[in-house]
Amino acid sequence: MIKSKILEELIDRWLTKVGTLVAIFITFRGHNAPGGGFAGGLILGAVFVLQYLAGQQPTIRRKPILNPERLLGLGLLLALVTTATPLFVGGAPLESYIWSITLPQIGKVKIVSSTFFDFGVFFVVVAVVLMVLTFLGTRGGAISHEPTDGAG
């Protein structure tokens, strides 16, 4: 891929951190302004793509995510649990609840249960990007450059 020390450094130091923050911010503000889990997840995904193109393992705070399937599962679970939980308290699936809590210093914060659903979406999107990069990218790349395998 692209080999450049400076680029590597740039991506490593700045882009990852800034990108992650932007992604989280976009996800959070989604309920009231353009953004949301999808956009957030895609932004973080784009960061990983850049890391990949620079020849690096996709990492967050230098910790590589080794098992994107698991992240995928967890993301789905989070979304599903948010969907199904109201059933246990007598509500309809996906029914949203709004809690208003007062935090010291910050003040009154409105927490909407559907935000958790959005987090699930966020994780799934991130995991999918990671899986595509790992499989079609890294592992597939190892095969692509050889001649046809003739098997099958």
Binding site: L136, G140, I143, S144, P147, T148, D149, A151, G152
Partner: peptide, 8 residues
């Protein structure tokens, strides 16, 4: 891609 790896 898979098609290509099989049949060229």
């Amino acid at each position: 891609w898979r098609n290509w790896t099989i049949t060229g």
